[in-house]
Design a protein around this nucleic acid. Structure first.
Lengths: 329, 329
DNA sequence: CTGAAAGCGCTTACAG
DNA sequence: CTGAAAGCGCTTACAG
């Protein structure tokens, strides 16, 4: 690749002039500009962005740190992060931690040394974030798809999702509704509160099985699930994600129960799976694209503010979930 | 962030010495080294990699160009690309084209101007690759998960996959086997040749429907599929991917046919979906992790060779597929 | 409108 | 073992 100096020499002008042409500085003689552009095209010259970044102290690079890409949820977010960043002429340096805190720390240092202009991260472990706290003070940082006190973040409102699902199922006439998920999950909190608010019961009988029991899919957990459903006359089940939901459907059908006639099933994440199950799965859609987009918007706002040392407001955004109704309910 | 100069001043040494400490140059007085490191730690100094890249004319950055991340296949590859690159201390600049040739061109230029050391790309359109051909001559480039004459590439052996599936189904006693996919696909070629080699018939009756017809899933395409299956006594279907396979299963079951008793179904890609269908789906696994790993290995080999201007051999690698047998066959 | 010069933050011969 | 100086490829006051 040629350098600016070489282009300048060939065009018979100074390096400054070539620089002006490239940066579209209006103070250039059109005739000269034409000639310089000619050489630039001829040699397919691309200015070295690293050199530019060095001078301008700005890389137009955003560091993205994600735990994994196996769950289809993250690729969707990543796509929208990339797309939105591109819109602002930023590019993305991707790093994946595979759930290793050690790696997360190393990768953040790497991104720092590469002088990214900002960081978007989905932390591996919300109870170990000191390194992120530290970074935050020297680099604009946004937490993506999680909420973390003291940070800027963009995430879906799990609490609201729970309420929406409960409301929907109650309206459909369900009285005994089961839940398969974690107890500490905000999905449950909203769900529970809405059920109680409607004077329905929700106790440990409604907490059917742990997600792991479904994932492992043993005979005994299958039996436990069915027993709980039958004994408590459960007619609807709210699950923590589409994969669990699909397994529940398969267990029910295998045991001659009808979905949704005997038991309705609701998934979470609204993944591609929903259209493939039989019947198609009702599921809570996270606004993944918007989470990605918003994360970038906020980050870039912070980046540009950094120079102007304006006020420091935290952006903490909960985006609304959306229930996508299909045949399983 | 402090600069090397500032660290040097505080430590009372020259910038050269700080540089030597950072680069682990053995010719540094241990006592001085200790002191320098102290300041580096104290201020959490991270050397500016851009400046270093500028001097060394090497960025330790690899450009990755993929068409999308929606198909779970690409995130898997991306994960292994990132992991392997990291192993060699390279990082990844990710760009997604969304199937736009225009965008592909722009992104490649961008990567070029960022002075990535090499490029791994899954081209959007194999019939428009002039811009990639051009880049190849100035930047080490590897085609990932596709085969393209004249380029280095790593991909799965689709032809072999076809043969493996045909062999398997024939061994299972199937005589009339259907195919849902594209005619120009190498998956079909190997499949077809194996069937013919076994003195079985394969003509347009066995080419059931186009994948699009299944995707759109209209009444008429459904009818067409069923008619073809029944009229030709088809007892097994080889499909182009797991999504199509799942839809086929759902159509069959809806029409009171049994899988695999009446019709066996084989998918492709061995995605997470396979364990969720009912019955679980037999599918061809692509060695995605290995495709990613190999792509990086080859690229880095090229990158390091570039300096040594050694011989120019093309690495064109077909990796073997693996049939994962489940209950649908 | 144009060019010479300084400087961004590093590395690396070179001389000592 | 150490430092001063040049240079990587740009941008940007500054002077004209």
């Amino acid at each position: 690749m040629k350098t600016m100096k070489e282009i300048a020499k060939m065009a018979g002008v100074s390096q400054s002039t070539v620089s002006r042409v490239i940066n579209n500085n209006p103070n250039v003689n059109p005739e000269i500009k034409r000639k310089v552009l000619e050489y630039i095209r001829k040699y397919n010259y691309q200015p070295n962005r690293m050199a530019r970044s060095l001078v301008k102290n700005k890389s137009f690079l955003i560091g993205i740190v994600l735990p994994e890409l196996t769950n289809p949820y993250f690729p969707e977010i990543l796509e929208s992060l990339e797309e939105e960043a591109n819109y602002y002429h930023y590019n993305i340096v991707l790093s994946i931690t595979y759930g290793s805190l050690q790696r997360e720390k190393e990768q953040i240092e790497m991104l720092l040394s590469r002088r990214v202009d900002g960081l978007i991260i989905n932390p591996t472990d919300l109870s170990h974030v000191e390194h992120i706290t530290k970074i935050k003070s020297i680099l604009p940082t946004v937490i993506c798809a999680q909420d973390l006190d003291g940070f800027d973040y963009v995430t879906v409102d799990h609490y609201l999702a729970g309420k929406i699902v409960a409301k929907y199922l109650i309206n459909k006439g369900h009285i005994n509704i089961g839940y398969i998920g974690y107890l500490k999950d905000k999905k449950l909190k909203g769900f529970y509160e809405e059920i109680i608010a409607n004077n329905l019961n929700f106790n440990e009988d409604n907490y059917l099985v742990a997600p792991e029991e479904i994932s492992d899919f043993t005979k005994s957990s299958e039996k436990k699930l069915l027993t709980k459903i039958i004994d408590n006359n459960i007619t609807a089940v709210y699950t923590i994600n589409d994969i669990i939901a699909t397994k529940v459907i398969n267990i029910l059908i295998k045991n001659k129960m009808k979905v949704p006639d005997d038991v309705a099933v609701v998934g979470f994440d609204n993944t591609i799976i929903c259209n493939l199950t039989n019947p198609p799965l009702t599921s809570v859609a996270q606004p993944t694209r918007e989470i990605g987009r918003k994360s970038v918007d906020i980050l870039i706002k912070k980046i540009e503010k950094t120079n102007a040392h304006t006020e420091y407001n935290l952006d903490q955004i909960f985006l609304p979930p959306r229930l996508v109704i299909r045949k399983s309910t």
